[in-house]
């Protein structure tokens, strides 16, 4: 039971990170119908920036906020300068452009900060770690029903719940949210009722990248270092989460992310003998494949009726 609880919370906190990336993907997909392949790398760049701010002596919270602002600008700029001009041609071209952005940002990270892990533990005798958002020392845990649960895991899970609630309010009860939903539903009509569609799309990409930045920083905090390969797997799980929940459903993205995190931890925990660490990946994707076969638009996605 203790073990189960521990794995559950670990799974939820890992899943929370996936959920943040998935949320970003869904926000972009709803607005423009594109899959942003660079979502993870945008987050990674921001995570590097936050590390750099930390090196310059800026406290964690302002550093994080600055990182999210940078994320917002990267996202918005990508939409305006790169995605919009190409999107008139074909959705495929946009996909390729996001792959280009993905490669470019990844290279930029290694060009600026080098290929090795940061902060490098070799400097000095004291082991330095990536600034964690929440207390993440080995003795920072609470005991619930006999299970030792890390405080940082709980905090990250709660943070994602708060973000989700916040987004829910923005989506459903603000003018910006209304505009975003209207654009997602019918961009042509949105223009005709006087919504500035281009602005809405720009802001959507910005918000998506800012949320991703939060995910990137939180994840780097969990595993205590940052390197250029950090976010690619997270992006893959995030997109898997979005697939599972349905690419047009923000709630689905969160549930999908949490599900994948928990399934993964449970599988690794209970069936380690048979599945092993390497096939952990396969299990979650198998789950998704089965779900997609039953519901081709994900668990909470809406199926579009096609007209000829």
């Amino acid at each position: 039971m203790e073990l189960f609880l521990q794995r559950l919370v670990d799974g939820l906190s890992e899943g929370s990170i996936y959920a943040l990336i998935a949320l970003g993907l869904v926000i972009i997909f709803r607005g423009t119908g594109h899959l942003n392949f660079a979502q993870g790398e945008m987050a990674l760049f921001c995570a590097y920036c936050v590390y750099q701010f930390g090196e310059w002596g800026i406290p964690m919270i302002p550093a994080l906020l600055m990182g999210m602002v940078i994320g917002f600008f990267i996202g918005a700029l990508t939409e305006v300068a790169l995605v919009r001009p190409v999107s008139k041609r074909s959705p495929f071209a946009v996909f390729i452009v996001t792959i280009g952005v993905f490669q470019f940002l990844n290279w930029l990270d290694s060009a600026i900060w080098g290929g090795q892990q940061l902060p490098s533990s070799a400097i000095g005798s004291k082991q330095r770690t990536y600034p964690s958002l929440f207390p993440n020392d080995p003795d920072d845990f609470v005991t619930v029903f006999g299970a030792a649960i890390k405080i940082s895991s709980l905090c990250i899970f709660c943070m994602v719940l708060v973000i989700t609630a916040l987004l829910f309010v923005v989506f459903n009860y603000t003018k910006l949210g209304l505009a975003m939903r209207a654009v997602a539903s019918n961009a042509d009509s949105a223009k005709l009722v006087g919504i500035k569609v281009s602005q809405v799309l720009m802001v959507s990409w910005g918000i998506a990248a800012a949320i991703g930045a939060l995910g990137g920083v939180a994840f780097a905090g969990i595993i205590t270092t940052v390197n250029t390969g950090l976010m690619f797997t997270v992006f893959l799980y995030g997109s898997a989460a979005a697939t599972l929940g349905g690419f047009d459903s923000p709630g689905g993205a969160v549930i999908g992310g949490l599900t994948i995190g928990v399934v993964q931890n449970m599988v690794a925990g209970y069936a380690d003998e048979w599945v092993g660490t390497s096939m952990k990946v396969a299990v979650s994707f198998l789950v998704i494949l089965v779900v997609l076969l039953v519901r081709p638009s994900g668990l909470f996605g809406t199926a579009k009726v096609e007209r000829v």
Partner: peptide, 11 residues
């Protein structure tokens, strides 16, 4: 700090 080939290719 890195060979620029990936960056060039992305551009």
């Amino acid at each position: 700090e890195m060979p620029p080939s990936t960056g060039i290719f992305a551009v």
